[in-house]
């Protein structure tokens, strides 16, 4: 599907961050409720119904939209919590619901026809057939693309479908086929796809030992750090393990996605919206990243060249190790 001006979709873990993202130039902000119906179910994060209603009003007053993620998978015989979340989002006047579970999609399609449905990355829909099924069955208007596709594949996909596509451009990277990760549930009994938590913090510990700090998840050592070395949050897919006599980041290097240099390519591939990851990040971080991407997207829309875009986003590539992910085919 061809697109006009690309939309910048930004994360908000709290009402303060929502306001910060909107003021920094987000076209749309995505957020979730304070329960297991969304994939960032961490302590102190997320919105009550009242906070969401206020957030929607604030965003609308500033010309932005609010998209509500209800994107975990409901438990067997217990879909009521997910339906209630969808009902609340609709009552609050949210512009769209981002969902993956067929039960949630079906509930919204039947009961809240006024609200747009976006297919979450958790649904891992990466073929015209899968996307077409969701569009035809539930009226899905946009699909958030799994982070396993190259730009060429996205372009081909967009030629074959007639719904909008949204692509991640910045932030944390999931290496697994999204919506189907069992690593966290193996170690902790809690799953990102069912409970909304990857590496639940109540099972995280940082233990001081003679040779430095060990970061552990549910007793499993995920990584070790020398004294004074910066530490990371222990997630299994980005852990350092020994296999075949060699110690390495077995599944994935602890790098973040930065596709800032590929915005023009994504536009040419027909992408409608660009998504920044990071609902667990603070408002300072969100403000800085959104502001930079706002300028970069505007520059792309005005035909700015790659050098200008790189200059605008230069500050975002300092510090953490980054990758262009699957957008350049070699990453796989």
């Amino acid at each position: 599907m061809t697109s006009g001006r690309m939309e910048l979709v930004c994360p908000a873990g709290t009402p303060a961050t929502l306001r910060a993202a909107v003021q920094a130039g987000a076209d749309a902000v995505y957020c979730g409720f304070r329960d297991e119906t969304n994939a960032r179910n961490f302590p102190g994060l997320n919105f009550s119904g009242e906070e969401l209603a206020e957030g929607v009003r604030f965003a609308r007053d500033h010309g932005s939209k609010v998209l509500v993620a209800i994107n975990t998978f409901a438990r067997v015989n217990d879909v009521a919590l997910w339906k209630k979340a969808a009902d609340t989002a609709a009552e609050c006047g949210a512009n769209a619901i981002i969902a993956a579970d067929i039960a949630v999609l079906d509930h919204v399609a039947k009961n809240h026809k006024q609200i747009r449905l976006h297919l979450s990355v958790q649904a891992a829909a990466a073929t015209p057939e899968a996307i077409g099924f969701h569009a035809n069955s539930f009226g899905v208007r946009r699909v958030v693309l799994p982070r396993v596709l190259s730009i060429q594949e996205i372009a081909a996909l967009n030629r074959a479908i007639d719904v909008e596509t949204e692509a991640f451009v910045f932030g944390g990277l999931c290496v697994m086929i999204e919506g189907r990760c069992y690593l966290s549930s193996y170690a902790t009994g809690k799953s990102p796809n069912l409970n909304g938590v990857c590496s639940p913090p109540e099972m995280v510990s940082y233990d001081e030992e003679t040779n430095g700090t060990a970061a552990r998840l549910s007793g499993f050592t995920i990584d070790r750090y020398e004294p004074g070395e910066p530490v990371g949050y222990p997630t299994l897919c980005k852990g350092k393990f020994k296999a075949g006599g060699k110690t390495s980041y077995l599944f994935e290097d602890p790098v973040s996605l930065n596709a800032g240099g590929m915005l023009a390519g994504l536009k040419a591939a027909g992408v409608t919206a660009l998504k920044i990851e990071g609902r667990q990040r603070g408002k300072g971080y969100v403000t800085e990243v959104v502001r930079a991407f706002r300028k970069a997207v505007d520059a792309v829309e005005q035909g700015g060249d790659a050098i200008e875009i790189d200059r605008i986003l230069a500050g975002q590539s300092e510090g953490a190790r980054q990758t262009t992910g699957a957008y350049k085919k070699k990453w796989r």
Binding site: P43, G44, E202
Partner: peptide
Amino acid sequence: LDGDALFFSRVISISGRTEAVLALRNTVED
């Protein structure tokens, strides 16, 4: 300042229940 950055770069140190720290950090942030 950003709490995550300060923690991961070890400017501040934290021990004990990580989930309680995270709840406090998000509450203060908001």
